[in-house]
C-alpha cells in the first residue's frame, strides 16, 4: 500500500503537466507568437513573468504552448514506438523460428548505431521538422520494446494457460491479443513511462540542434537554441525552457521508477 502512496504525487504532477499541454492555448497568458521588438529581451516582471525573447515574445506563454509541442510529440512518438516495438517483439517471441531470428537481427542492426548520432544523421537526410525527428528517434528506439516484449513472451510461452487457450479454441493471433499482450503490458507500461523522459530530451535535443521543430514553433529545444547566444546577457530565454525540460523529464523518470516499484513484486517495500 505504501508503494501506491508514493506513486500518487507523481501521478498528480504528470497529470498536471499533461493538462497544461492539452489546454496550453487557453492557459497561456499572452499570444506566444506575437512579436513586439519594443519589449525585446525584457527580464521577468509583473507583465512578463518569465521575461521576453529577442523578438519580444512572452517566454512564459511560449514555454506553456511549447509543452504541447514537446510533450505531445514525445507522447505520440512513445505510443508508436512502444506499441510497434512490443508487437514486433511479442510476435518474434511467440512465433519463434525464422521470424524471431529475422526480427531480432533487425533490432541488432538498429541497436548497433550510436542513438543520437544516428538520429541526427536520419533527421539530416530527411530534412528538419518534428516528423523527421520523430522518425529518426523511432528507428533507433523500437528495439528497446521489441527485446523487452520478446523476453517476457519467451518466459510465458510454455505456460499451460496458453495451451489451455488453444484447447478453448483460440487461434494463435487471438492468444497473442487476449492472453499474451495483457500479461506483458505492466512492465512495458513502466518502461514506457520512464522512457518518456528520455524521448522528451531527445526530441528537444534534435530541435536544439536545428533538426526538429522549425521556427517560429514554440518548442522547448528550439527555444533553447534561440536563446543560446543570450545565456550571458538574458539567461531567462534559455533557462526557462531548460528548466521546463528538467522538470518534465524528472517527473516522468520518477513516475517510471515508482510504477516499477508498484508492479515489480520482487522488490521489497
Amino acid at each position: 500500500m505504501r508503494k501506491y502512496h508514493a506513486l500518487i504525487p507523481f501521478v498528480i504532477l504528470a497529470s498536471l503537466l499533461l493538462v497544461v499541454a492539452l489546454f496550453a492555448p487557453a492557459i497561456a497568458p499572452l499570444d506566444p507568437y506575437a512579436q513586439d521588438l519594443s519589449v525585446a529581451l525584457l527580464p521577468p516582471d509583473d507583465t512578463y513573468l518569465l521575461g521576453t525573447d529577442r523578438y519580444g515574445r512572452d517566454v512564459l506563454s511560449r514555454v506553456i504552448v511549447g509543452s504541447r509541442t514537446t510533450l505531445g510529440a514525445s507522447l505520440a512518438l512513445l505510443i508508436v514506438i512502444s506499441v510497434g516495438g512490443t508487437l514486433i517483439g511479442a510476435v518474434a517471441g511467440y512465433r519463434g523460428g525464422k521470424i524471431d531470428t529475422a526480427l531480432m537481427r533487425l533490432s541488432d542492426v538498429a541497436l548497433a548505431f550510436p542513438a543520437m548520432v544516428f538520429a541526427i544523421a536520419v533527421a539530416g537526410v530527411l530534412g528538419g521538422g518534428l516528423v523527421s525527428a520523430a522518425v529518426a528517434i523511432a528507428l533507433i528506439s523500437w528495439p528497446k520494446y521489441a527485446r523487452l516484449a520478446r523476453g517476457l513472451v519467451l518466459q510465458m510461452r510454455s505456460m499451460p494457460y496458453l495451451a489451455a487457450a488453444r484447447f478453448a479454441g483460440r487461434s494463435e493471433t487471438e492468444i497473442l491479443i487476449y492472453h499474451v499482450m495483457p500479461n506483458i503490458a505492466a512492465p512495458i507500461i513502466v518502461t514506457a513511462t520512464a522512457h518518456l523522459g528520455t524521448l522528451i530530451m531527445e526530441m528537444a535535443g534534435l530541435s536544439f540542434l536545428g533538426l526538429g521543430a522549425m521556427p517560429p514553433t514554440a518548442e522547448w529545444g528550439a527555444m533553447m537554441n534561440n536563446g543560446r547566444s543570450l545565456l550571458q546577457t538574458s539567461p531567462w530565454v534559455i533557462l526557462s525552457p531548460g528548466i521546463a525540460i528538467f522538470i518534465a523529464v524528472s517527473i516522468f523518470n520518477m513516475l517510471g521508477d515508482k510504477l516499477r516499484d508498484v508492479f515489480d513484486t520482487h522488490l521489497n517495500e
Binding site: M159, P160, Y161, A164, F167, H179, P182, N183
Partner: peptide, 14 residues
C-alpha cells in the same frame, strides 16, 4: 480437452 499438472498456471492470471 486437457487438464494440466499445475492448476494455477493453467489459468490466465489476469
Amino acid at each position: 480437452q486437457m487438464i494440466f499438472q499445475q492448476p494455477i498456471d493453467s489459468f490466465d492470471p489476469r
